[in-house]
Design a protein around this nucleic acid. Structure first.
Lengths: 331, 331
DNA sequence: CTGAAAGCGCTTACAG
DNA sequence: CTGAAAGCGCTTACAG
């Protein structure tokens, strides 16, 4: 790899002139410029990004921290983030926490050492304090999908409405015994879904049927097990609301094994749809979540924050995306 | 953020001593060490990774470049890579090319500027020259899943055997009219599948029925369309071999719409299985590919190459993983 | 319009 | 056992 010094030597100028010519940071005589470009070409010079990063205190690098990208909405979001980041000339670091707070903590500790300029995270919820510390130290942070902390930026979907609207829709379809599979209710995003569900049921004077799974392990299994639990709690069940498509796939599988016809006997809807829904043998009705857009939006806001850092303190933003109902074969 | 200088000042020593104490790079008097650790703690000092990177010519950062992680085997592989990298104290940069050679090229150009210490890539196949250049410039590269170039390391599955063994298996199950859906046959990994398929059919004296899709767009659709093409070519078809689970999902969907019973009338197998297979309404028989292991293996080899770079020139390695047949409901 | 110098935050020979 | 100095490859005031 050739350096600025090599280029300067070949073009018979000082390295500072080369720097200025390449970055267009002040006027350089056309002839000089030409010589410099010629030298750059000849040596196929490329600036050392690490040196630039050290000097400018910014590596043009953001981190995306997610629980899992295998068959989850986070894959779509991560792709959206990476695409937008590239557009704005940033690279994207990727950390997979397996929804394990210890791994999340370790990753965060490493990242705060000035490696990345900003962080986008779908957190476990157990390192909120650390996140606040990091933000206070000058590294902007955005929560995505899961919002635990009001004083950190966030980009989420409207989980309350997802659930609320789903119940209304299912009611119109004739359902009267609707069960919800949901994660730890102490945690905001899950609670929101429950609230939407609860409110709608209350309006219809219907009774609640919920199964809660504490740890976020495997959505498919949660759907499978959840279905069995819900059916035990209420054998007259005529609809199941899953949190996400893969959970819905577990529901479908459980229903099939119990020989319950869907949608005839029992309907299924997913509250977080992504493109799996219409690839299934029996396609799955869902509230489609704009994962790609959410990722792009998060990246854009983050990078804007990074670049404004010096000028003004950016305001905390909470962006809420609407999901849209896509009717398919399970309802 | 506090620096080495701050710690040195607080501990009343030179910065070089602090560096030595923290990196255990030479003996430091216990008392001095204690003072230094105390200062580190008090200032919650963290070394600046960019400065370290510049000094040592290594940022402890590798890149993983893949075509797509949404519902693909690459998600599993990327996770494996990241996990192994973290274990070895490396961070992972993530680039999504959308299987677009132009995007791939752009990403590669940026990365070669010394940002990353090594690259793991599932390439488009159109930038092989550039990859060789980059490797020649001192950045180790490993091809994963797709091997285009012999003089670059690779970690792949045995596609030939996958296809060959699948045909043998289907034959034993009674199939005599087996169709293959496959990508561009000019490209090595696809060709391998075709060869395995072809060889087995020849041994049984059965006739070939293939549909080739040139561009890699959407596996689900390729499966869907491919199924229709194969059935037109041979209405007596009794088995379809798909390249990957999501393609198999497209096959299933097409069969369902044509009211062809699977596995009774027609069997389906996927040559690249990952955990989707057993989450389906009708679970999909597949040759399971150890994505996680392949990712880990690629990361391990790459990082070893990075760290040996100075000592000796590492030998090119080609690692081939075996897939294992997992029988499910479509056969 | 361009050069010489300082410095980003580290590590690592070189002395002693 | 520890300090002083050089240097990784850049950028950016400061002169002229």
């Amino acid at each position: 790899m050739s350096t600025l010094r090599d280029v300067a030597r070949l073009a018979h100028v000082d390295i500072s002139t080369v720097s200025r010519a390449l970055n267009n940071t002040s006027y350089v005589h056309p002839d000089t410029k030409a010589r410099i470009y010629e030298a750059v070409k000849q040596l196929s010079y490329q600036p050392n990004l690490i040196a630039q990063g050290l000097r400018q205190g910014r590596l043009h690098l953001i981190a995306v921290i997610v629980p899992n990208i295998h068959m989850t909405i986070f894959a779509e979001i991560a792709q959206g983030i990476e695409k937008q980041a590239r557009l704005m000339d940033y690279e994207t670091l990727f950390c997979d926490t397996e929804d394990n707070p210890a791994i999340e903590k370790e990753s965060l500790e490493r990242l705060r050492s000035g490696l990345v300029d900003g962080i986008i995270i779908a957190a476990t919820g157990y390192n909120t304090r650390l996140l606040l510390d990091i933000q206070a130290s000058g590294i902007p942070i955005i929560q995505v999908v899961r919002n635990f902390e009001k004083s950190l930026n966030s980009v989420i979907a409207d989980y309350f409405s997802c659930a609320y609207d789903s119940i209304k829709y299912l009611y119109k379809k004739g359902c009267r015994h609707m069960g919800l599979i949901v994660g730890d209710l102490e945690i905001e995003p899950f609670q929101q879904r429950y609230r939407g569900y609860h409110k709608a049921l209350k309006e219809y004077k219907l009774s609640v049927n919920v199964t809660e799974h504490k740890k976020n392990s495997n959505a498919f299994e949660e759907g499978y097990i959840g279905t069995n639990t819900l059916l035990e709690q209420d054998p007259k069940l005529d609809a199941i609301i899953a949190e996400v498509d893969t959970e819905g796939m577990g529901v479908i599988r459980a229903l099939k094994e119990r020989k319950l016809a869907f949608p005839e006997q029992i309907k299924v809807i997913s509250l977080t749809g992504y493109s799996i829904g219409n690839m299934l043998e029996t396609s799955l009705t869902s509230m489609e979540m704009p994962g790609d857009e959410m990722g792009k939006s998060a990246a854009r806001i983050l990078i804007e924050n990074v670049e404004e850092k010096d000028n003004k303190k950016a305001h905390i933003q909470h962006i809420v995306f609407n999901s849209t109902l896509v009717e398919r074969e399970t309802t």
